[in-house]
Amino acid sequence: MIVKIEPEANRRTQKSKRFIWMKHSDSFMKGLLMVPTLMSASFVIFIVGFISRKGIAPFLPSVYGSERVNAFSFLSGTTWFVPPNVYGILFIVINTLYIVALSTLISVPLSVASALFVTRILPKKLQGVFKSIIELLAAIPSVIYGVFGLGIIAKSVVRLAELFHAQTAGGISTLTTIIVLAIMIYPTITMMSVAAISAVDPALEHHSLALGATKVQTMTKVTLASAKPGIFTGIILGVGRALGEATAVSMVAGNAGSGPSLMLFSTTRTLTSTMLLGLKETSGMDYDIRFSVGLVLIGVIFVSNFILAHFKKKVGRFS
């Protein structure tokens, strides 16, 4: 900052005054800035708190009396909704995890390969174009992915099922859901992987090449190894998106009433499709129970994030 030149006489006192003000202003600012930070940080507690409050209501005798849902059978049940109060969510959690795991398995190799291709093989000019396309894909509203899944992927799945002499409900199946999700998280993982691979020090690769490793060896053993933590962040984000995706999934999942459905060609039900389906009434048990499902969804996301973050640490350590 530019310090103004003051008349000599006043300079000393001014300076000390200013010194005090400056010192205080710093701690004042610090306190002031702390407020929005605390606000931002507390939103998570806020969200979880409010959803818990509504989500726990169906289990409380004080709210629903004899109609209340048994918390244990809610968490361990394998049938969704037999009136008045049987809601089982275990099979839905299993379905959700199964679908998300498989779609991640499909998407990760594709994304990483694409990222390698873009950063290491594609000329610089095309890189920008590719990145823009990927970002565009990430911006397509999810309902459009649902329409695409129903219009094209489901039809292909019907043909595939015919090859195996299996019958699908017009392609509405676990497999279709997996493919739609894999496509939806592809941009997320690819974008993060591109960033991670671009950040790898080229010198490392030059050394590897100089030591006689082939280009392929270098890519897999050196480049990918050092980009691993970044790629893992991408996977965590992708898994998060897949777990939370609602609109497209509910269009192609079929919403089976019981399960778990591990067969690829059978219909299925996920946490989010359960939350979205038939959400028209705005009070009563059938509405409140959706908050309970939301609570379980938050739990699943936190746990999976935690596990993946743990893996990420391990991966980072051994590379």
């Binding site: 049987v86 219909t267 038939g278």
Partner: peptide, 15 residues
């Protein structure tokens, strides 16, 4: 009307 439990297994529920 209000229960899916009495329906055939493998039904598909649409919105």
């Amino acid at each position: 009307i209000t229960s899916n439990g009495v329906l055939v297994a493998n039904y598909v529920e649409v919105d």
